[in-house]
C-alpha cells in the first residue's frame, strides 16, 4: 500500500492553509483585546471629529471645537477630558478624565461625545 497519501503540492497547500488559520486567530485575539490600545473617539452629532491613540501620545494635545459652543478637549498619554466648555451646566467638564475602555463624556448642548473605544467589563449600561 502506498503510504504517501499527500504529494508535495498538497503539503504546500496544507502548510499555507495552516498559516492562514494562525494569522486569522491572531487577528481575532487582537480584536478581542482592544484594552491595550487605548483609543479615544471624538464625535459631534454622530460625525467623527477625531480619533486619538492615547498610548502613543508623547505631548499633550489640545483639540479646539467651536461649532456654536466653544470647547477645549485635552488628550494626554493614557487619558482624555473636556477641559473647558461654554455650555451652561458644565456636565462635560465635571465628568473629568476618561482613562479606560468604555469611559464616556457627553456634552448635550454641543452634541459632542468622547468615548474610549471598547467595552466596560464591569457594567453593560449606566442608569443615572
Amino acid at each position: 500500500m502506498n503510504t504517501r497519501i499527500f504529494k508535495i503540492g498538497d503539503k504546500i497547500l496544507i502548510v499555507s492553509i495552516a498559516i492562514i488559520v494562525v494569522i486569522l486567530m491572531l487577528l481575532k485575539t487582537v480584536e478581542v483585546n482592544p484594552d491595550k490600545q487605548l483609543t479615544a473617539v471624538i464625535k459631534q452629532n454622530g460625525n467623527l471629529i477625531k480619533q486619538i491613540n492615547l498610548n502613543d501620545l508623547k505631548n499633550p494635545e489640545y483639540i479646539h471645537l467651536n461649532d456654536g459652543i466653544n470647547q477645549v478637549i485635552l488628550a494626554e498619554k493614557g487619558r482624555i477630558r473636556f477641559l473647558e466648555s461654554d455650555c451652561p451646566n458644565q456636565t462635560c467638564v465635571k465628568t473629568g478624565w476618561l482613562t479606560k475602555s468604555g469611559d464616556k463624556a457627553v456634552c448635550i448642548p454641543s452634541k459632542v461625545v468622547i468615548t474610549i473605544a471598547g467595552y466596560n467589563k464591569q457594567v453593560d449600561i449606566f442608569s443615572y
Partner: peptide, 12 residues
C-alpha cells in the same frame, strides 16, 4: 449588568 451612578461621583 446595569451600573447605578454614584450620586456624588464622576459620571460613570
Amino acid at each position: 449588568k446595569v451600573g447605578i451612578q454614584n450620586p456624588r461621583g464622576q459620571n460613570g
